[in-house]
Design a binder for these strands. Structure first.
Lengths: 189, 189
DNA sequence: TGACAAATGGAGATGACCTCCATATTTTCC
DNA sequence: GGAAAATATGGAGGTCATCTCCATTTGTCA
């Protein structure tokens, strides 16, 4: 996973085009209506090129997801540096809901692909989970959050939010989940 | 959705065989490794018969899911009739985790299919959501649970649990999610 | 029992996915 | 700068799962 070989110039260009186009199509929610071959044409490359760069739909999604996760992790670090721990955690989780709401198609597409039992996308989540772990650890140190529950549970709840994007009352319910999690995380008693 | 036409005897028999076999295959987790046509043969019917009864994999899953939901709803009613409201709610949610754990393959299969943006399975969840709504309403009446969060949020959290079945530490994290939800549901302050 | 309706099953059309390789582009080395 | 080696391209076509269609079988009702 460490050293990606130095890609040739045209290869790198095509790869970037594919990822950019994929993000676009994901966000529009049209990904599953599209033959994979047609996606290649849409991006202006041959099918062979598409398959060499991304052997499966999941591989493509993983690449898109990476960018997403990186941005979220940056936000987490920024919040942690500028706010008291408990507030940083709350702001991050509330912000996740905003973010998911703003990229509904993307979230839905990623959630769908994540469900296919490849587990490929789960690896991409590790960085995100680490960010949540850090936020929580800081809050525990401040005594604002219980220490007997770890980030995995929060990730599960977030996953539930992301996967349920077709519920009619999604936004309010998503906010409620975060409320429950945050209130549940305050030490009981 | 109301009046299912009276099925002919052989049709009903085949339908039942298909559902039974599907549950079996789901539970073994082999559903996606299997050509749909081969599933027909496995159940001892022709492909035409399979497709007439269940036009898609999702339709088949929905039928299996119905049975599952019905059983869970019965359990909810039983708990509600025999325990104080708050305990009934807690027992039900804890029991959901047990149930999912005991039918890992089934849960994973249903979660995967549910993610495919058909929303077909979501309808099947309505009865389950109603059961949770009832349990929560009773607990609110007892003053044991806050009244500003409704069942939808709990459903989301449960969905997250069911969808994340490949996490290495699944069981502990699932229990933690329930803990957070239950503690979050106690009135804050 | 006969006649009508409902259901069956599997052969074959359809179309998505992916491989393969002759050609084109980039890089390296003198 | 140019030739050889290495790397990447694209799209034609093979493969295989999905789904349709209808001649035949099975069940129902009077």
């Amino acid at each position: 996973m460490a050293a990606d070989k130095p890609l040739r110039a045209d290869a790198r260009r095509n790869r970037d085009v594919l990822i950019a186009k994929a993000r676009e199509v994901f966000d529009a929610g049209d990904f599953f209506d599209l033959r994979f071959d047609d996606f290649a044409r849409l991006a202006g490359v041959g099918t062979g090129t598409l398959y060499r760069h991304f052997p499966t739909r999941e591989a493509l999604a993983e690449a898109v997801y990476h960018g997403e996760v990186a941005a979220l992790c940056d936000r987490a670090r920024h919040l942690q540096a500028t706010l008291p721990a408990a507030e940083a955690l709350a702001a991050f989780l509330r912000g996740m809901v905003d973010h998911i709401a703003a990229h509904e198609g993307l979230a839905r597409t990623l959630a769908t692909l994540m469900a296919d039992r490849s587990g490929a996308l789960a690896e991409g989540s590790l960085a995100l989970e680490q960010a949540v772990t850090d936020l929580m650890a800081a809050a525990v140190r401040d005594g604002a959050v219980r220490d007997d529950v770890d980030a995995g549970a929060v990730m599960m709840a977030l996953h539930g939010i992301g996967a349920a994007h077709d519920r009619p009352n999604w936004r309010a319910e998503a906010d409620d989940v975060i409320t429950l999690v945050l209130d549940g995380l305050r030490r009981p008693l």
